[in-house]
Simulated assay, not measured.
Amino acid sequence: MSTNADPIETLTTEQSWERLRTQELGRLVTHVGETIDIFPVNYAVDGDGILFRTAPGSKLFELTVNADVLFEVDHHTDTAAWSVIVRGHASALESDADVQRAEAAGLRPWIPTDKRVYVRIAPTSVSGRAFRRAPEPDRDGPQEY
């Protein structure tokens, strides 16, 4: 990007998936009634979906009440940043074949807890934006219109 270019770039779906594949920590947003929760989860990209592991508790309960979720991943350096949002439906994997495939993804809990339930987010949309980071524009003097 040139210095005069828009500091915000809309990512294509493929560019968004490329960025999702580079990270392993995201935020899961659930919505049940008037309650909106956000949970940090480590994850893996599985083909055209997102996998994470969990245990019985509020997160899994909320997903069974309302499977519609948002999943957000971002990353930044001193000069650039990006954010990708996945909208989709989350469901616990139940078949042996699905669980075996998920186990092959190598997804392991970050903390020593027993998380035996694999959940897959099937995306309905994926969108992302990249940002050029730079100092704030000068506020004094003539402004462009």
Rank of each mutant, 00 (worst) to 15 (best):
G106C: 08
L25Y: 00
L25K: 04
T113R: 14
E24V: 08
S125P: 03
P142K: 13
Y118V: 01
S83I: 01
D98F: 08
A44I: 07
G128V: 12
T113F: 08
L63A: 04
D140Q: 07
I111S: 14
T35A: 15
D48N: 04
T13E: 08
R120P: 15
N4V: 07
A80E: 00
F39I: 00
D98M: 09
D68N: 11
D68S: 08
D114K: 11
T113V: 10
F71A: 04
T64Q: 10
A80Q: 03
G106L: 08
D68F: 12
T124F: 12
I36W: 11
I8C: 00
P40N: 09
T22S: 10
I38S: 14
F39L: 05
S83K: 00
R19C: 02
H75W: 12
T113E: 12
G49D: 13
D140Y: 13
L11N: 02
A104N: 07
D48F: 10
R27H: 06
E34K: 11
P40W: 14
P123Y: 13
V117Q: 11
T124P: 03
V84C: 03
R53M: 12
G26A: 05
W17S: 06
F61H: 08
F131A: 04
V119G: 14
D138G: 09
K59A: 05
L93H: 09
P137S: 11
E94C: 05
T77P: 04
D98V: 00
T3M: 15
S2E: 07
S16Y: 03
K59P: 02
A67K: 03
R129G: 01
G49S: 12
W17G: 09
R101Q: 11
D78L: 10
V41H: 08
T35P: 00
A134N: 03
A105H: 12
V32W: 13
S16K: 08
S95C: 08
V86N: 00
